[in-house]
Design a protein around this nucleic acid. Structure first.
Lengths: 106, 106
DNA sequence: TGGTTAGTTTCCAATATAGCAAAATAACCA
DNA sequence: TGGTTATTTTGCTATATTGGAAACTAACCA
C-alpha cells in the first residue's frame, strides 16, 4: 500500500460514499431524467428541505452534481450520468443475493 | 416515493456503502486479480487483522464477496467483478473534478 | 493433549453521519 | 423598503462507523 494508491482509494471511496444513501440515490435517479430544483427534489425525497439541501451539498462536493441559480431557485444537474451504470451492477449483486436466499429456503 | 422504491434504494445504498471505504476498495481490487486469504489481505491493507476481518464481513453481508475455508485459512473471492466497472466511472468523476480545479487556478 | 496459526467476536473510545428546527441568506416582487 | 419564496447554515441530538486490543474459536500438527 503506497501513499498514492491510498490517496486514489480514498478519493474513489469518497465518491461511492456520496452515493451510498437511499435519498441521494432517489435524487440521482431523478436528475438522470431531467434537471430539478431543490424544492422539487425535497418533495420527491419526502424529507425536510434542510436535510435535502445537505444531501445535495454532499453530492456537489463529490462532483456528482452541479447547479445553477435561476431566480430564487437552484437548479440541480447530474454531471456524470455514468453513475447510473453503477446501479445496474448493484442490481446484479442484489439479484444474486436474493437467489441465494431462495436457495436456502428451497 | 412509494415503499417499494424506498426499499430498492435502501438495498442499492447498502451495496454502495459496503464498497465506500478505502480499505475495502483495496480488498476488492486485490480480489479482482485472484482469491486471497484474510491474512494476505490484512498485509495488503496494512491494518490489524481484526479490523480487516470486520471489513470482510461488511463485504460478505453486502453479497460482494464469498469465502471458503481451507485448513485454518479463509479464502475470499469476489462474487461480482462487475463492481470494478464502478471504479471506471468514479475515475471519470474524479478526473472531471480535477479538471475543474485546474480551471480555477488557471 | 498442548501448542500454534488463522480468523472472528466483543469491548470500548473516537469520529462521522443524519435529521429536524430555527436562524441566516438571497433573489425577487409590490 | 418590506415581504415572500427558495435555499443554506447552524445547533443539537441520536445513531452508525471505524479501529485496535483482548478474548474466544477453529483447524491443524507434534
Amino acid at each position: 500500500m503506497n501513499t498514492n494508491s491510498t490517496a486514489r482509494h480514498k478519493a474513489h471511496a469518497a465518491v461511492l460514499k456520496a452515493m451510498a444513501h437511499a435519498s441521494r440515490l432517489v435524487i440521482i435517479e431523478a436528475l438522470a431524467t431531467k434537471d430539478h430544483c431543490v424544492c422539487e427534489l425535497a418533495a420527491l425525497v419526502g424529507a425536510d428541505m434542510s436535510t435535502v439541501s445537505k444531501h445535495l451539498s454532499t453530492l456537489r462536493n463529490a462532483g456528482i452534481i452541479s447547479d445553477t441559480k435561476r431566480g430564487t431557485s437552484v437548479i440541480c444537474h447530474l454531471k456524470c450520468p455514468c453513475v447510473l451504470s453503477f446501479l445496474a451492477c448493484v442490481t446484479d449483486v442484489l439479484k444474486t443475493n436474493a437467489r441465494e436466499q431462495m436457495d436456502l429456503v428451497a
